[in-house]
Design a protein around this nucleic acid. Structure first.
Lengths: 205, 205
DNA sequence: GTCCTCAAACTAACTAAGTAAGTTTTATTC
DNA sequence: GAATAAAACTTACTTAGTTAGTTTGAGGAC
């Protein structure tokens, strides 16, 4: 076949297709050959653009972290801004839950992510938090977001609440007391609210 | 060779060896053959005890979640108890950071983990939190623990703080303001403290 | 315009890993 | 003591990541 008239691939196209493939069929479906097929190309052709699967995963990370939007942090009300940012951050990851375990441990390199972290730090120091504590709060917020997407508390309990009652009555009560479908989101909102409440009282309001 | 005089393997032994292998050399080093070699056995022999690698990962999850200790929750001071429990929970996962991405998404099945969740729910309802909110708080605490182990905020920033200053000054300030080595732990402690503060004020103390 | 070089697709093939099939020897049960 | 099942083995299949070498077209240098 030889070199095509117009390039059929580029790194960006490959990365986006990989994200789609993972979103649709899970990480297990992400093979170089399957990805190539989806791009109408043969497996080894991908290596003209990414040097290994590891690098492909880096590229996926870039695509996904670019979705993080720091704009909400411009809100004059810091509490509103941080809450909206955190929800948007979580929403971005929730669009790609199967990819998260693989991206969560990679370094932050996109302009979007770094400038979001910068905006969080700026917001926190602006309202009077010492810089060291700003980093700590930012980390805690991050942990809540990543944890809530990766762990999905609700899915950890595969059985109906009643089946836990005999051995774990308090757990059964707590699971039965609310809508199971919304538990992850409620857990996140609870955590977010408590972090912000704590921050407000730390600042003496 | 044929059947050995005394069985050389059992599921538990295999699972523990797999955890050790992952702890020492990372998930990438966990292959059926490598695990077998470590156990002085040939690869396929493992299949007499686990039916697939997926099942091996389930077994790993069991080994690790068994390390979760609910005992601290018996402390008469709920705040002390929950804090100590959360720290122990995190410490258990921190002993196996490379395994965490693969276990975080699996259902909770061990008696240790379920009874820990039950004890958290019991503690929270005992101090007056409605059951639905107990589940939410428990989820939030979980997210903080899992997120703090898996994401390691500090490692996300590979460069020295000063290199971020030109483009991300607030981020650089916040990173430079504290000891980088302890940032993950401080972020976790901050989150934990704020969650507990928020809980206390929710309960009206 | 021709030539050279490089880019970007290809085919073929290697290696490693998960796993299935079938063999052997030993423990256990009747 | 014979039959059965367990638990190791060897062999070998499939799939996936990757490398090597091939082909053809694009783009710049003279």
């Amino acid at each position: 076949m030889g070199r095509p008239n117009r390039p059929k691939l580029d790194r960006e196209l490959i990365a986006r297709a990989a994200v789609d493939l993972v979103d649709e069929h899970g990480m297990g479906a992400l093979t170089m050959r399957a990805l190539a097929t989806r791009l109408d190309v043969r497996g080894p052709s991908l290596y003209n653009h990414v040097s290994s699967k590891e690098e492909l995963l880096d590229a996926i990370t870039v695509v996904i972290t670019r979705e993080i939007d720091r704009a909400p942090l411009d809100d004059p009300d810091w509490r509103v801004g941080i809450a909206a940012f955190a929800r948007g951050y979580r929403a971005a990851y929730l669009r790609h839950p199967d990819a998260l375990p693989v991206i969560a441990r990679r370094p932050v390199s996109t302009e979007q992510a770094l400038s979001a972290y910068d905006a969080v730090a700026r917001t926190l120091t602006r309202i009077g938090l010492p810089p060291a504590e700003a980093a700590e709060f930012s980390a805690a917020l991050d942990y809540l977001v990543v944890g809530s997407v990766i762990e999905t508390y609700e899915e950890g309990f595969t059985r109906p609440a009643e089946e836990y009652r005999a051995e774990y009555p308090s757990l059964a009560d707590s699971l039965a007391a609310g809508d199971r479908d919304t538990l992850n989101a409620r857990g996140f909102e609870t955590g977010l609210g408590l972090l912000l409440d704590g921050l407000a009282s730390r600042l003496g309001n």
